[in-house]
Amino acid sequence: MTGQPLLEADGLHKAFGPTKALDGASIAIRAGEIVAIMGPSGSGKSTLLHCLAGIVRPDSGHVRYQGAEISALSDGERSALRRTQFGFVFQFGQLVPELTCLENIALPLRMEGVRRREAEARAAEWLDRLDLADVGRKRPGEVSGGQGQRVAVARALVTRPRAVFADEPTGALDSLNGERVMRLLTEAARETGAAVVLVTHEARVAGYSDREIVVRDGRTRDIAREMEGAL
């Protein structure tokens, strides 16, 4: 790998009580790269994503964002990092039910202090881009699962983050809607230059990535790179 990775985890260990979730996991993600983290249920892939995103602190090991140690930051600093540099898409959109879809998309901008009118104007651009023009004034409970996930994608990208973390983003969708969400997410990420860290157990979803990392029993393997190295 050439140059400094955007995001890097090295020798991560994390246990929840007696259960080891990560047992020496390592990964490096370059700017603009789409990387799938795959593995069976309980293998530690979501914990790895949470450590990379600064949501969970590892028991030991290093997580670096642009070369700076994330685990050395205070809770407030990590929260600011997540707000300004990262975007998130979860399996169930986790949209705020009381807000309209447009307000949900604008929310990360409002939290950064952007004025309402400007935030909503920028959010509206994403509505058009993700074929959501009709749902802007609706609340999350009034839209379909696929539309809700596209709203979540728009919300993740509206701040133009350097990295988007997507945890089973199509897990609750049918094939057609899942494909639409993945296509829009990866196209938008490529256009804005955001890296995507994609946790999935679905191979068809991983097909949208540039490469995959396999997590098993809390340890990571980059098979494709090992195969290249063996040639």
Partner: peptide, 20 residues
């Protein structure tokens, strides 16, 4: 056997990326 399954997964995913 785990290694050969891992190698095969990588090969399948390579083709799946191409098709995607």
């Amino acid at each position: 056997a785990a290694d050969l399954l891992d190698v095969q997964r990588a090969e399948h995913l390579r083709l799946m990326r191409e098709l995607t």
